[in-house]
């Protein structure tokens, strides 16, 4: 760590520690008073599980009971990538090569791992319906695969045209939004999936979400991870 950052002054250090220990004591007191008996929400989740179209209670809560939270959560993710892209100075995606040279060990590893990761992502997506899993987990694995591929130089970042990248990023969120709005045409509230349609709709949303999340994570890595080449010398105002 560059040593030019002076150690935090001693006085400041002591004060901070003192304050935070006191805060901890009070938080501990509060935490210890938490009532250990169940407060009744868990039971209502169980008995509504059948009509949620999904068996895994967490996915049910995530995508059906509190689907609105997830919708906004995806919006946050999309917003984050938009923010990151807005920070890039020129153009959408950095065109520069990421890795200076093809590292043989890395390229071998990529060739082995990437297919495995895609397969696992598919399984996770499917398993989410009954067991822990779902769009986010699958998406993150896809993202990891994407990063690996890009890092190892097999794929140059300019591979996909910026327009397509943007569409993939947005598609997950848009599909979710559309799915949320459809019930409104059947005189139902937002995100109130008709019973018989609940399961297919959730699956539809989950798949598209996976792709979007994967692409979002990859783009986040690529766009802000551009290499420090000479034209990037510090401080030149382009």
């Amino acid at each position: 760590m560059p040593n030019n950052i002076e150690r935090p002054r001693r006085a400041q250090h002591i004060v901070a520690v003192g304050l935070l220990v006191a805060v901890f004591v009070l938080l501990a007191r509060a935490v210890l008073y938490i009532p250990m008996h169940d407060t009744g929400v868990a039971s209502s989740i169980q008995d509504n599980l059948q009509i949620s179209g999904v068996l895994n209670p967490v996915t049910a809560v995530l995508l059906n009971f509190r689907g609105y939270d997830t919708l906004l959560e995806i919006a946050v993710l999309v917003l984050a990538i938009i923010g990151v892209l807005s920070l890039q100075r020129e153009g959408m995606l950095a065109s520069g090569r990421l890795a200076p040279f093809a590292d043989p060990a890395l390229s071998l590893l990529t060739r082995i791992l990437v297919p495995m990761m895609i397969l696992i992502a598919g399984y996770l997506l499917w398993a989410g319906e009954k067991a822990p899993g779902g769009a986010f987990q699958a998406g993150s694995i896809l993202g990891a695969a994407g990063v690996l591929v890009t890092l190892s130089g097999h794929v140059r970042p300019g591979w996909l045209s910026p327009a397509i990248v943007k569409i993939i990023i947005a598609v997950g969120f848009v599909v979710f939004l559309v799915a949320a709005i459809i019930p409104m045409f059947f005189d139902k509230n937002l995100l109130e999936y008709p019973l018989h349609l609940a399961k297919p709709l959730i699956i539809l949303i989950e798949t598209w979400l996976t792709f979007s999340i994967g692409m979002i994570l990859v783009t986040m890595f690529i766009s802000s991870a551009a290499p420090i080449t000479d034209d990037y010398v510090r401080g030149d105002a382009t």
């Binding site: 009971f65 509190r66 689907g67 609105y68 509230n189 937002l190 109130e192």
Partner: peptide, 11 residues
């Protein structure tokens, strides 16, 4: 009520 579930469960 979003999703028609009502307060404790839905939002």
């Amino acid at each position: 009520t979003i999703g028609g579930w009502g307060a404790p469960l839905g939002i």
